[in-house]
């Protein structure tokens, strides 16, 4: 049997079982090469701690977030309602996702359309697992003493006021956490939100992701920690733009925890 598995909800339900928590992978986590590594890292952690989770596989669709923020409410509600039909059909109660956009949409915008679930972002679940002692990092892990700076995503931070959970997760790495000048509630956007990811930026003097990357580089950190697949793309592009991709790495929280645990 494979070391790591990602069971499908449909298979669990066919066996008469229910998952403790549904892992909502999201489109980026499913299709984007870089974000797939985040999905894999998080699934490894879920396997490692022995949580009874499941994924929707082919039954998952875009939450509708980019459509809604671009102003296409019809398309958003179409996506939302078909997803809610699937989720309610499986009687899903609790959802975890590694994407703050999916997190925000399912948590805050699905209830008005009949989708009521307990929704957590993977930063919150990871923090909880650390608090419960289910995730432990060996003394002197691979990140010990390294300089890490954490980038607040807008949809976890300002949109949902989650600032501490991701920082608590990073603390277990025994690394040196350095804050950017603009952090927490004044954190600077990566430039991808509001469906900007799916169009060219409007005319301006500079790209937002370059501005943010410069700020991250100023901290002297060698690792930029992200919690969002879109921030991941924007910041990785920013690091490439500055030709620093050999020295500076952008990692998701789940990847850092998985790496530190040698998963």
């Amino acid at each position: 049997m494979a070391k790591y598995t990602a069971p499908l909800v449909s298979e669990l339900v066919a066996k008469g079982e229910n998952p403790e928590i549904l892992f909502w992978v999201g489109c980026a986590g499913s299709f984007d090469e870089r974000a797939k590594a985040i999905t894999v890292a998080f699934v490894k952690i879920l396997n490692h701690v022995g949580i009874k989770f499941a994924v929707l596989g082919h039954e998952e669709s875009c939450t509708g977030d980019p459509a809604k923020r671009a102003g296409n409410e019809f398309l958003f509600q179409m996506m939302a309602m078909s997803n809610i039909q699937v989720l309610n059909g499986y009687q899903i109660k609790k959802i975890v996702t590694a994407c703050p956009h999916c997190f925000n949409t399912i948590k805050n915008e699905y209830p008005a359309l009949g989708g009521n679930y307990e929704v957590v972002h993977h930063a919150q679940l990871l923090q909880q697992l650390i608090d419960e002692g289910r995730i432990k990092i060996k003394e002197g892990g691979s990140f010990k003493g390294k300089k890490i700076t954490y980038h607040d995503s807008c949809y976890l931070g300002r949109a949902n006021q989650i600032y501490e959970a991701p920082r608590k997760v990073l603390e277990v790495l025994d690394a040196q956490l350095v804050e950017m000048k603009r952090c927490r509630s004044t954190g600077l956007c990566c430039g991808a939100g509001g469906a900007q990811m799916f169009k060219e930026p409007e005319k301006g003097k500079k790209d937002i992701n370059v501005e943010r990357t410069e700020e991250a580089l100023q901290t002297g950190a060698t690792i930029i920690a992200a919690n969002c697949p879109f921030c991941m793309t924007m910041l990785s592009d920013g690091v490439k733009n500055k030709e620093k991709e050999t020295e500076i790495k952008v990692y998701d929280l789940a990847e850092l925890i998985a790496l530190a645990n040698e998963l």
Binding site: Y4, C27, S30, F31, C62
Partner: peptide, 19 residues
């Protein structure tokens, strides 16, 4: 069912990367 032009049948391909 995704904002990019990927085939929906590829949505679960990431599972192959698990090992």
């Amino acid at each position: 069912f995704a904002p990019w032009k990927f085939s929906p049948s590829d949505r679960f391909n990431w599972v192959q990367k698990l090992d």
